[in-house]
C-alpha cells in the first residue's frame, strides 16, 4: 500500500487546495510538479522563457480547477499532464483543443476512497513499468509524447525502419497498458 503513499499525499494536497485554498499544500505540489512540467514543455519545443511562463499558468490552472479534480478518475500526475498538454497546444501550436463530452455525474457525490487508492496504485505500477522498459522502447514512447516528430521523422533521424519503430512502440504500449490492469 505504501507504494501509492506518495500519490495519495498528492491527492490530499490537491484536495487541501480545493477545499482550503491551502498555499502550503500548493507549494508542495509546485515544488514537485513545476520543474517536471517545465521539462515536458521544453522537450516539446518551448524556449526556456516560454516554458517558465507556461508552467506558471499550468500551476495556476491547477489551483483554479482543483474543484474539478476527481481522484477516482485520474491520478494527480495524469491530471496535471492533461492541463500541461492543453496549455502546450494552446501556446505552442495556437490551436483549440476539442475535448470529449463529460460523462454525466453519477449518483455518488463523494469520491470513493477505495477507488481513489486503487487508481493511485495502478498509476504507480504504470510508472514502474515505464521505468523498467527496455531503453530503446522508453525513448520512443517519450518522443511520441514530448515531440511533434512523426514516426517517419523518427525513422529518418534514427535510421530505424518505420516498421521497427511502430512495433517497438506497440510492444511498449502493450506492456504499459498491461501494468494498469
Amino acid at each position: 500500500a505504501d507504494l501509492a503513499a506518495k500519490r495519495m499525499a498528492w491527492v490530499a494536497q490537491v484536495i487541501a487546495v480545493r477545499d482550503g485554498k491551502d498555499r502550503a499544500a500548493f507549494a508542495e505540489l509546485f515544488g514537485y510538479f513545476a520543474p517536471r512540467v517545465k521539462s515536458f514543455l521544453m522537450k516539446s519545443g518551448a524556449s526556456p522563457d516560454l516554458a517558465e511562463e507556461c508552467t506558471q499558468e499550468v500551476m495556476a490552472t491547477l489551483w483554479n480547477k482543483a474543484h474539478m479534480f476527481d481522484p477516482t478518475k485520474a491520478s494527480v500526475s495524469t491530471w496535471i499532464f492533461t492541463i500541461a498538454r492543453n496549455r502546450k497546444i494552446d501556446m505552442l501550436r495556437k490551436q483549440r483543443r476539442p475535448e470529449p463530452e463529460e460523462l454525466p455525474w453519477g449518483p455518488e457525490a463523494e469520491p470513493d476512497q477505495v477507488d481513489a487508492m486503487g487508481l493511485q496504485q495502478e498509476t504507480e505500477q504504470l510508472g514502474r513499468a515505464l521505468a523498467t522498459l527496455p531503453v530503446e522502447q522508453r525513448k520512443l514512447i517519450e518522443r511520441a509524447y514530448f515531440g511533434d516528430l512523426s514516426h517517419s521523422e523518427i525513422a529518418a533521424e534514427t535510421g530505424l525502419p518505420l516498421g521497427t519503430i511502430k512495433s517497438r512502440i506497440r510492444l511498449a504500449l502493450d506492456r504499459l497498458r498491461h501494468a494498469m490492469k
Binding site: F33, A34, P35, R36, V37, K38, S39, F40, M42, K43, P48, A51, E52, T55, A74, S75, S77, T78, W79, I80, F81, T82, A84, R85, E122, T123, L126, G127, L130, A131, I141, E142, Y145, F146, L173, L176, M180
Partner: peptide
C-alpha cells in the same frame, strides 16, 4: 493520458 503523466513525471526536472 496516464502514460503521458508518467512520462512527464519521470522526465529530468528543469530548474524553475
Amino acid at each position: 493520458d496516464a502514460i503521458g503523466g508518467e512520462v512527464m513525471v519521470s522526465s529530468d526536472p528543469v530548474e524553475v
